[in-house]
Nucleic acid binder design. Sequence first.
DNA 1: TCTGCCTGCCC
DNA 2: ATTCTGC
DNA 3: GCAGAATGGGCAGGCAGA
Length: 595
Amino acid sequence: MLNFIILVVKIKFEILTDYLEKLENTSSQTAMINILSEIFQESGKEEIDKICYLILGQIGPGYEDIKLGMDEKMIQAAIAIAANIDKESVASETNNLGDIGIVATKFIDISKNKFKKFFYFKGDLSVDDIYKAFKKIAKVSGTGSYEIKKKTLASMLIEADDLGKKFIARLANGKMRLGVGDMTILYGLSVSVFGTKDKKDELEHAYNVSSDIGYVGKILFEKGIDGVNNINITLNRPIKAMLAQRISDFSQIKVKINSENIAAEEKYDGERIQAHKEGDNVKLFSRRLNNVTKQFPDVVKKIKKHINVKNIILDGEIVAYNFEDKKFYPFQKLMQRKRKYKIKEYRRKIPVKYIVFDVLYVNNESFLRKSYPERRKKLENILESSKYINLAKRVVSSNLDIIDGFFQDCIDRNLEGIVCKSCANDSYYHAGAREWSWIKWKKEYITNLTDTLDLVIVGAFPGRGRRSGTYGALLCAVYNHEKDVFETVTKIGTGFSDQQLEQLPSKLEGVLTDKKPARLELSKKMDIDYYLIPEYVIETLGSEITKSPIHTCNWNEEEERGMALRFPRFVRWREEKAPEQATTSEEILQMYREQ
DNA sequence: TCTGCCTGCCC
DNA sequence: ATTCTGC
DNA sequence: GCAGAATGGGCAGGCAGA
């Protein structure tokens, strides 16, 4: 018998980072795909999976319960020990440069280094070394783990060259900022093996049902496209959820949706849950595919009881529900069930319903490529509606007035809105896709149903990435007429055009101040980078008012809660308004009571 | 043992 | 979650 | 229009340090 020594050539980390640098400096999608294709060819089947994860700033498939437990603050601490300087300098430079990777390269100078490496690498730093070190960071927990994570990262940062430092720090941050997402990777895989983008759809299907891009890459390299096409929906492995598109104007529904008949389902403000039942074994997965079974023993029980099919995959929403008043509880209440401890107690305190709206798999048969009406019909046959588990309520019509009536009714009953679904023959369940066969329509999209708020800018936060050098978000306040003070109600970081963002620093320069303005009421928990004298007013939009532990608007001492805006966004400047003409705390209180 | 900061994950 | 932008 | 990258409120839990 011969003994073969199998030499696995491990790719040097340097080679990967050269490619990453090229990707970062490329904006054309086609050019990026070609670069990715080169990387994949070089990596070969041994390391293709790791390379896919790393390019996306991940260290494994999303559904695996692997968390680094490390973010910007800890990365800064690691840079500080690797560079032998204080954390505060690293933090302030992160704010100035807006990129933790560049900060790492700038500060860490190996010749001046005094930090004794904690972790040694043999020979040239390889992709595998980096991958394993990050896995190690993810794995360690308990007392002293903070130190180990920090030192492991610091060791990597010291070992790598400048480019390496940049991407290691960004990897720890989970944001590579290359302009490459999972779809671009799929195109790259297709080009690397076939020379064309043609096989992307097949790869995407495999990805959407396996939820593991590294696995798809590996199968493609090992077994070819036939192997990829054999990847199918499997019980107990979560598949990517289908998402709904949005529109800005109700009449667009008819234009965008490709069917005469429209099914309008109630849209619930809860948690998207995919349920897998295999005999007596039930598993629940969140929208990001985390296993959340333990949080909802009540739902597991009801699924077992009311679904008389052996093997099945369902899609739906868990909502907190007050069975006495027959009303939905707010989302914030449901979130308290996102827990590891005191599950029994909270199961009583916060009862929930599982509202099912789709079926993806029944007894070894995939339902993904059956039409929505067919799937719904199957669901109606299978599910015996009961108190704790039911079908999503809906109307089906080709008449927009009827759909609108249903929507109004939903709004009156305090639901978020509706989801309109195509009833066409090809209205498949397109896992992972945000498609025009599902369209959401929420109350807040209707301008005259939602009040805009005029808020005073009282603070600012430095931007990251593409927002380097300008502000990333502004702290906004309402005016309390009675006390003549400004109370914070939200930060705003979206809705600005690039041009508006670019102009922010010069626009706000005149109101920058070192001290907290006297009339600003600030919570201890709010850490402001730049104080601004209350002067500028902006028009903003949000979906609702929530109770807030960090904002001081209508602060209640006993509850230790103020009020805040959910889903806030910038609309426009209100130059003509004085800060005292801004929306008042009183008005916010009124809005809170009315919703 | 308690508190506050940080992180991950829901929306 | 929402929003903007280059391709 | 897609795909990617900015950003929000707020919940529980993990860990360090007082």
